[in-house]
Computed example of a mutant assay.
Amino acid sequence: MISGTTAVIGLLGQPVSHSLSPVMHNAALEAMALDWRYMAFPCDAEDLKAVLDGLQAVGCRGLSVTIPHKQQVVGLCRELSPLAKRLGAVNTLTPLKEGGWHGHNTDMEGFLAPLKLQAEQWQGAEAVVLGCGGSARAVVAGLQQLPLTAIHVAGRRPDALADFLNDLRAGQGSDSAPLIAMSFDPEPLSRVLQRSKLVVNTTPVGMQGHGGDNAMPLGSDLWAGVDASVTLYDLIYTPRPTPWLALGQQRGCHTIDGLEMLVQQGAAALRRWSGRADVPVDQMREGALRSLNVHQA
């Protein structure tokens, strides 16, 4: 029931009508018996500051931030967490008592959550990241937390890749795995893939509307001989599975899609907003899956 005491949390982005976050978060709020409701707020870039000021004025308890505002909102925060500063991106806003917003990024925590279930596999292993766009920042920062020996990052534009790696190297620990630049050239990539235990796709290839029904990052030929010992992690979750993950499953690979990252980053945000550790991740996942299945039916 929504009453006069119900507080609001929500999502800022454009577009947001497709988002699974409201269903996911409201399932958790109901299980937690919190008198809050999570709403999706479409917001254009030129309105972002006004929307943030207005939501704080009416007592909003927290906000998720998605495309295309994750970088722009950094400059509108009164405080930033060290991780948000390092990534140059914010996806979680918490109101400050003295006014303004604290900006944090839970994408790295969300990305790492399923990998931590296989923690022993990453000791001394190599990983490959495909793409160096915005979502890849949290991915690489997360991989730097694992006991890997090398992280190979493949990008299409050498200048953009160099800037990306310099940013991530600046904040890495002394014991972090080295970051190695690679092109999208299939021949050297194939050699690296043969000895890697984890491959992460951060590109949109394979998503509905990107490249056709059977599209895979860098084409299907590169993956024809993928070994069953490799874990394939695709940040995409529509369709489910993506053609790339479907091929990996046929080859016996362990596969992870982006739905778990979405759920886990959302749970991390809700823990921050509520100050509670008992966020029901299972209910969030079930709510997201129900909504996703309805939309894909």
Results as ranks from 00 to 15, higher is better:
Ile256Lys: 11
Gln264Lys: 15
Trp244Leu: 06
Thr255His: 08
Trp273Asp: 00
Gln265Arg: 02
His254Asn: 08
Leu245Asp: 00
Met261Glu: 02
Gln249Glu: 12
Gly266Asp: 00
Gly252Val: 13
Trp244Tyr: 08
Gln265Gly: 02
Trp273Cys: 01
Gln250Leu: 13
Ala269Ser: 12
Thr242Glu: 03
Leu245Met: 06
Gly258Lys: 10
Trp273Arg: 05
Gln264Gly: 07
Asp257Gln: 07
Gln250Cys: 12
Leu247Arg: 14
Trp273Asn: 01
Val263Met: 00
Leu259Ile: 08
Ala269Asn: 04
Leu262Gly: 01
Leu247Gly: 13
Cys253Trp: 11
Cys253Met: 11
Gln249Leu: 08
Met261Asp: 01
Thr242Gly: 04
Leu270Glu: 04
Leu270Cys: 12
Gln265Asn: 04
Ile256Glu: 04
Gln264Arg: 15
Thr242Ser: 08
Trp273Glu: 03
Val263Asn: 00
Leu247Pro: 04
Val263His: 01
Arg272Met: 06
Gly266Ile: 00
Thr255Ile: 14
Gly252His: 12
Trp273Lys: 10
Trp244Ile: 05
Leu259Thr: 05
Leu247Trp: 15
Ala268Glu: 05
Leu270Met: 15
Gly266Val: 00
Gln265Thr: 03
Leu270Thr: 11
Gln265Met: 07
Trp244Arg: 05
Asp257Glu: 10
Cys253His: 09
Ala268Ile: 06
Ala246Trp: 08
Arg251Leu: 15
Cys253Arg: 15
Gly266Glu: 00
Cys253Asp: 14
Gly252Tyr: 10
Ala269Gln: 14
Asp257Tyr: 08
Gly266Pro: 01
Leu245Gly: 01
Val263Thr: 03
Cys253Pro: 07
Cys253Thr: 14
Trp273His: 01
Val263Lys: 01
Ala246Thr: 04
Cys253Gln: 12
Pro243His: 11
Gly258Asp: 05
Gly248Tyr: 06
Thr242Arg: 04
Ala267Gln: 03
Thr255Ala: 07
Ala269Arg: 05
Ala246Leu: 10
Trp244Val: 08
Gln264Asp: 13
